[in-house]
């Protein structure tokens, strides 16, 4: 079932068109890797899908109950080190207002933290955590609000190789549970193995939607890999 459908979507900042006439859909169980060069509109697309940016053209359709069931991981880590909040408190912000209370609430948040291997530092100050640890806590927050879809902007930022691998496994198991996952990554080679589809954006504003296999054989994959790995 299609969770989010984009038809002829155009995204702009003022007069500057970033993405033009993009059509694709995110369905249950899919894992879409969004890639492209810097400035090709990856983060703008993500921000549009979660309602932070309005499209300048085309349509965006959400399935029933999807709009309120999207878990989101922003690209930028919020707040500085001095903000007084524990990792547990930050993760719990993913729960919808008033959805759970007391012991049930604690259990849900702890479960989300353990899925991202962040349970061990749940009571630590969020600001005192390393970049990778913070990212795992923010991922837990996204998981708590994701009942239908998970949209992640650079989820592997700050994570080392082993934890990134764990993250991809987690995304795969979440999609098998029925979530639609769309994520931006620069780690094309690593992320592609765990993706079912690829949305490649070009600096010219074009969007190309492939299956993972089609993408491996495409000219876009070769070009991007050369650029990322400076070959």
């Amino acid at each position: 079932m299609a969770l989010i459908t984009a038809q002829n979507l155009t995204l702009s900042y003022g007069q500057r068109v970033v993405v033009r006439d993009l059509s694709f859909s995110l369905s249950e169980g899919q894992r879409i890797l969004v890639c492209g060069e810097n400035g090709s509109g990856k983060s703008t697309l993500v921000r549009t899908l979660v309602g932070l940016h309005s499209p300048s053209g085309g349509t965006l359709t959400y399935g029933e109950g999807v709009r309120g069931g999207i878990g989101y991981l922003p690209q930028k880590t919020p707040q500085d080190a001095s903000f007084p909040a524990t990792a547990f408190e930050v993760a719990s912000l993913g729960l919808r207002e008033g959805s759970l209370r007391g012991a049930a609430r604690r259990k849900r948040v702890t479960q989300a933290l353990s899925r991202t291997s962040a349970e061990a530092f749940a009571s630590d100050s969020f600001g005192a955590l390393s970049g990778g640890q913070r990212q795992r806590v923010l991922l837990s927050r996204a998981l708590l609000s994701a009942s239908k879809a998970l949209i992640l902007d650079e989820p592997s930022t700050g994570l080392d190789g082993a934890v990134t691998h764990e993250l991809y496994h987690l995304l795969r198991s979440l999609s098998r549970e029925g979530l639609g996952v769309l994520f931006v990554s620069h780690d094309i080679a690593g992320a592609l193995d765990f993706s079912t589809h690829v949305l490649h954006l070009t600096p010219q504003g074009e969007g190309h939607f492939y299956t993972a296999e089609e993408y491996r054989a495409s000219a876009h994959f070769c070009t991007l890999c050369r650029e990322v790995h400076h070959v």
Partner: peptide, 19 residues
Amino acid sequence: YPAFFSLTFDEEFFEAQTA
């Protein structure tokens, strides 16, 4: 209080989560 906390910590996430 819960909404104010979320708004204070990360306004972008809060905006994405609620209308």
